[in-house]
Design a protein around this nucleic acid. Structure first.
Length: 213
DNA sequence: TTCCAGGCAATAC
DNA sequence: GTATTGCATGGA
């Protein structure tokens, strides 16, 4: 997949204006071969907010919400934590589930401020309301650069078609499978997950693999 | 119009 | 511990 699609440069960040013409959807937000992102606390925060906003939603819808937040100077935890809930709901409307996501963003913003720049551990993140296994691992892998493998709907669909996995398709069994078979390296984990997503987006759900498998 | 997308918490068994 | 359900917009 790497030979076919090239380095993916995840996570997509709004601030990056480089162009990767082979991308479908948007031409912005990627930073292939540059693994120094996020470069500051705001970018770190942006990744975490994006991880929450993209829950069960397309990235296109998420990106609209992120752009709205950015335009209104809402990409900082203080602003989100202190603003009117209805204002926040309006800005993230396009991401869907905006009532619960607005509350989750506020809760996470408080948590992020309390960290004061420190890296949270997995259990701390999971204890935050609105953060489940996938959102947690996305934050750790892409914002905090901890080598933990991210399992999402694409990952399971990829495995379901591949025949190389005979276990149960629950989150932790799938995660363990990848972590056992890949070198525990931050760049490899980031690229492998992003390449699976790119591959699955391109081929579509041809075999109509059901969600959850 | 219908279906589904980079989940999660609450609830029910 | 596992299964089900509500949440909501926007594109195909």
């Amino acid at each position: 997949m790497y030979d076919k699609y090239g380095p993916q440069g995840w996570w997509p960040l709004l601030e990056f204006n480089g162009v990767n013409p082979t991308k479908t959807g948007n031409l912005k937000g990627y930073h292939p071969l540059d693994y120094s992102y996020p470069k500051n606390e705001i970018q770190k925060f942006e990744i975490c907010i994006g991880a929450i906003l993209t829950q069960n939603t397309t990235w296109a819808n998420t990106e609209k919400a992120l752009i709205n937040l950015e335009k209104n100077d809402f990409l900082n935890p203080e602003r989100i934590a202190s603003c009117e809930l209805d204002t926040l709901k309006g800005l993230i409307r396009s991401s869907g589930y905006y009532n619960q996501k607005a509350i989750r963003l506020k809760i996470f913003s408080e948590f992020f401020m309390d960290l004061k720049g420190k890296t949270p551990n997995r259990d701390e993140l999971l204890s935050v309301k609105g953060i489940g296994p996938e959102t947690c691992d996305s934050m750790l892998l892409y914002a905090y650069k901890i080598p933990t493998f991210v399992v999402d709907a694409y990952t399971k669909r990829f495995l379901a078609r591949s025949d190389i996995f005979d276990g149960k398709f629950n989150y932790y069994d799938v995660k363990a499978f990848f972590e056992k078979n890949l070198e525990r390296d931050i760049i490899i984990f980031q690229e492998f997950h992003a390449l699976i997503v790119e591959n699955e987006k391109r081929i579509g759900n041809k075999n109509n693999v059901k969600k959850g498998y």
